[in-house]
């Protein structure tokens, strides 16, 4: 447990040597974009870099990123909880976000969501038991002209989707190891222990067949409550 408001001494890195190298190089590039006395501004970029390596941001990871930029852990946590693209708990290797904002909704995005739910056996906000897929409902992706739209692993746009094309996409992703979301060899399987704790949170509803792990950001951190 890392105290949130204070900082004492160096914080241990969560990365493997290879990951560390990529993180350091990325951080140097991000920091270089800002005036020398403004390196804290690179916090969002640094968190993205860490998440690219590890797949999600644990408390030790957040503390380490903060340590590197002289940002107090509480400030890091404030940022991580504010932005939806940061994950405070492990998610599936492939995260599928279906846009359900007004234009996509008018073009049938709810049907797409339902279809994905049935294919994967989970509700939006959950992860399949094998850790392969997470499903999310996301808001406007700025791709309304090609509605309905979806987003894979935060950065890949899929447009003009149909229930059939989403089925094909899920099949295609199933074949691939999760290279897009996390480069490192970290086990991305949801921790069953973690699942039990999340039962108390309102979003952690059961899956369509058997329990799943809630990945809803509001379901809280991975720390014991």
């Amino acid at each position: 447990m890392i105290p949130l408001g204070t900082q004492s001494g160096p914080v241990e890195s969560p990365f493997t040597p290879e990951q560390q190298q990529r993180f350091d190089a990325g951080l140097a590039r991000a920091v270089a974009k800002y005036p020398p006395d403004r390196r804290k501004a690179a916090l969002l970029a640094a968190l993205h870099l860490a998440q690219d390596e590890l797949g999600w941001l644990s408390e030790p990871t957040m503390a380490y990123v903060g340590f590197r930029l002289d940002v107090p852990p509480v400030r890091v946590r404030e940022v991580v909880t504010f932005y939806t693209m940061y994950r405070m708990r492990p998610v599936g290797r492939h995260q599928i976000g279906v846009c359900n904002s007004i234009s996509c909704w008018a073009m049938g995005s709810e049907k797409i969501l339902k279809h994905c739910s049935e294919l994967l056996g989970i509700h939006p906000g959950e992860t399949t038991r094998d850790g392969q897929f997470s499903l999310e409902e996301v808001s406007c992706l700025a791709a309304c002209g090609n509605a309905p739209a979806a987003l894979v692993n935060n950065f890949r746009y899929v447009e003009n989707v149909t229930p059939e094309s989403m089925g094909a996409l899920i099949g295609e992703l199933r074949e691939k190891p999760g290279t897009e979301m996390a480069k490192g060899p970290l086990p991305r399987m949801p921790d069953p222990h973690l699942h039990e704790q999340s039962q108390g949170a309102p979003q952690a509803t059961g899956s369509l067949d058997g329990p799943a792990v809630s990945t809803h950001p509001e379901a809280g951190s991975t720390e014991p409550r």
Binding site: C140, A142, C144
Partner: peptide, 12 residues
């Protein structure tokens, strides 16, 4: 930071 529902011109 284009994100207003229904807007996608800056992306284009």
């Amino acid at each position: 930071d284009e994100g207003e529902p229904g807007t996608f011109k800056d992306r284009e």
